[in-house]
Amino acid sequence: MNTNFFLLGLDGGGTGSRVVMADSGGLVLAHAVGGPSGLGLGIGPAWQAITASCREAFAMAGVAPEWSRCVLGCGLAGANNPVWLAQFRQQAPDFAGLVVESDAYTTLLGAHGGGPGVIVALGTGSVAAAGQMGAWRMASGYGFPSGDEASGAWLGLRAIVHAQQALDGRVADDSLARALLTQVGAQDRDSLIAWLCNANQTAYAALAPIVFAHQAHPFAAQLLSDAGAEIAKMVTALDASSELPVALCGGLAAPLHAFVPQPLRQRLCVPLGDSAQGALQLARQEADRLSREATR
């Protein structure tokens, strides 16, 4: 077996994919981005996005793609669904090696370099994880609309209630209500109901920036305080002893930082890397295993 591998770490979600490519020694050669590859969007489309992203990384590195020399580590949204995962593996190209884990796990690996720690990933959805390479567990991440506390969709789902009440006269018609209605293109009760009937997780998450922009408003302030409390509950569930470093990750990590209650805020650290880099750690580990087997 040729053990001069190319290592590929992939972070795949519902809005896009990110790939980091390295040589067998771990030297990073390229970064690339591509279309969504979360397994909930379909196995075929996921592989199309992944292979396109990997080809883009090879092109940026100036190397012709050769799947038989590639070890791919994936952190994928939806990888915890066993049916989707089995179908994903069945349709895989002929890679030298393939490792697939939840994007929560690869985010944890990337944030703490494979060492012990806690992460709370905050974006359109949310999930928390704690542990280290080989041993970890999750909290939250049950999905929209019942779970994913403190996520963009969670904030938006609750924020639109203020607009509903403003239309009815249950609360004042103020700047927050008007901004929310403008975002969804609604002018009255009927047009808001039409939007609500079609809104998905992504549509609700698009309302989160309005909440942050109006954070001095009592309704928004309480909502953001509640989000901070939910983050604290996730961390406590995973690390009741308060001994592990905690990293907030994802697009809402910075906006929500100020709403994390003390003393948890004092424990927050800057992530060492992201989910794609965590996936690259999985690829490196698998490549090492394949190399050992080849020399036996």
Results as ranks from 00 to 15, higher is better:
residue 67 W to F: 14
residue 106 T to S: 04
residue 111 A to Y: 05
residue 64 A to Q: 07
residue 71 V to Q: 04
residue 45 P to M: 14
residue 73 G to I: 02
residue 102 S to G: 10
residue 60 M to V: 06
residue 113 G to E: 00
residue 54 C to F: 03
residue 99 V to E: 02
residue 124 T to E: 12
residue 128 A to S: 10
residue 148 D to Q: 08
residue 53 S to Y: 10
residue 97 G to D: 03
residue 88 F to G: 00
residue 113 G to M: 05
residue 111 A to C: 10
residue 88 F to P: 01
residue 100 V to L: 10
residue 145 P to I: 09
residue 144 F to S: 02
residue 135 A to T: 08
residue 52 A to K: 12
residue 113 G to A: 00
residue 48 Q to V: 13
residue 114 G to F: 05
residue 97 G to V: 04
residue 104 A to T: 05
residue 120 V to H: 02
residue 150 A to W: 01
residue 75 G to D: 13
residue 58 F to V: 07
residue 73 G to D: 02
residue 136 W to S: 06
residue 96 A to M: 05
residue 55 R to K: 14
residue 72 L to V: 15
residue 151 S to Y: 08
residue 93 P to L: 15
residue 64 A to S: 15
residue 94 D to P: 01
residue 127 V to N: 03
residue 130 A to H: 03
residue 125 G to M: 04
residue 135 A to W: 02
residue 57 A to P: 01
residue 89 R to P: 06
residue 99 V to I: 10
residue 50 I to Q: 09
residue 70 C to Y: 07
residue 99 V to H: 01
residue 127 V to D: 04
residue 79 A to T: 13
residue 125 G to A: 12
residue 43 I to S: 01
residue 68 S to L: 06
residue 77 A to K: 03
residue 146 S to T: 08
residue 110 G to H: 04
residue 110 G to L: 12
residue 109 L to K: 11
residue 75 G to I: 09
residue 61 A to V: 08
residue 143 G to A: 08
residue 86 A to K: 11
residue 81 N to L: 08
residue 67 W to R: 02
residue 52 A to E: 13
residue 132 Q to P: 00
residue 65 P to N: 11
residue 116 P to Y: 04
residue 143 G to K: 05
residue 58 F to C: 14
residue 128 A to F: 03
residue 82 P to E: 13
residue 116 P to M: 14
residue 56 E to M: 11
residue 53 S to H: 07
residue 51 T to M: 12
residue 96 A to R: 05
residue 99 V to Y: 04
residue 59 A to L: 12
residue 130 A to I: 12
residue 67 W to K: 06
residue 59 A to D: 14
residue 61 A to E: 06
residue 150 A to Y: 00
residue 95 F to D: 02
residue 97 G to L: 02
residue 47 W to R: 15
residue 154 W to P: 01
residue 49 A to M: 14
residue 149 E to M: 05
residue 148 D to K: 04
residue 63 V to I: 14
residue 61 A to K: 08
residue 83 V to H: 13
residue 60 M to A: 13
residue 94 D to L: 11
residue 125 G to Q: 10
residue 100 V to R: 08
residue 40 G to N: 14
residue 49 A to K: 07
residue 77 A to N: 13
residue 48 Q to R: 15
residue 129 A to Y: 02
residue 153 A to T: 06
residue 73 G to F: 03
residue 50 I to P: 00
residue 126 S to D: 08
residue 65 P to Y: 13
residue 50 I to N: 09
residue 86 A to H: 09
residue 106 T to K: 00
residue 42 G to E: 06
residue 86 A to W: 06
residue 87 Q to P: 07
residue 130 A to G: 09
residue 127 V to W: 04
residue 133 M to N: 03
residue 111 A to R: 05
residue 120 V to D: 01
residue 74 C to N: 11
residue 92 A to S: 15
residue 127 V to R: 05
residue 126 S to G: 11
residue 89 R to W: 14
residue 119 I to M: 09
residue 50 I to C: 15
residue 50 I to K: 06
residue 57 A to T: 09
residue 95 F to G: 03
residue 133 M to R: 12
residue 139 A to V: 09
residue 74 C to A: 13
residue 81 N to H: 12
residue 85 L to G: 07
residue 141 G to C: 12
residue 43 I to W: 02
residue 77 A to R: 06
residue 97 G to R: 03
residue 98 L to H: 11
residue 85 L to K: 09
residue 67 W to G: 01
residue 78 G to Y: 09
residue 158 R to N: 06
residue 124 T to S: 05
residue 131 G to H: 09
residue 105 Y to H: 11
residue 64 A to H: 08
residue 132 Q to F: 01
residue 54 C to H: 00
residue 60 M to P: 08
residue 69 R to W: 05
residue 71 V to Y: 00
residue 148 D to H: 07
residue 44 G to D: 15
